[in-house]
């Protein structure tokens, strides 16, 4: 299963980025192979409007099944994620990626 985190860096020690649409990076953790990958989303800074759906589209291309983030996606992005069937968990904005993963495993993150 591919789990994607909104993050301020590129590895499991990075701090989470509480934002969804304008997150700096995605950290992508593949639970099956235990491999960690990342995606640089900083080009989104150039978008005046509609950062949310655009980022959600990226998430689809990355093949994410689960998204873990801070405050959660806004309306448009939420629609995209729902269409793609991505599971969304929020409330991990103040953690590191590893802590967010542990919290997810422990079931302490809120499902949207």
């Amino acid at each position: 299963m591919k789990i994607v985190f909104t993050a301020k860096g590129t590895d499991m020690d990075a701090a989470m980025d509480p934002r969804f649409g304008r997150t700096e990076y995605f950290v992508i953790f593949d639970e099956d192979s235990k491999s960690v990958d990342s995606f640089d989303n900083r080009a989104i800074e150039g978008e005046a409007h509609g950062a949310g759906p655009k980022t959600a589209q990226k998430l689809g291309e990355l093949g994410a099944e689960v998204l873990i983030t801070g405050n959660g996606p806004g309306g448009n992005a939420a629609t995209v994620l729902k269409t793609m069937g991505t599971e969304v968990l929020v409330g991990a904005g103040d953690m590191t990626v590893t802590e967010a993963y542990d919290a997810y495993k422990a079931g302490s993150l809120k499902k949207v």
Binding site: D17, P18, R19, F20, G21, R22, H49, A51, G70, N71, G74, G93, D94
Partner: peptide, 12 residues
């Protein structure tokens, strides 16, 4: 609108 959404995004 969009600016206030962006203001709120990431807020503690």
């Amino acid at each position: 609108g969009c600016p206030v959404v962006s203001s709120l995004s990431g807020a503690s």
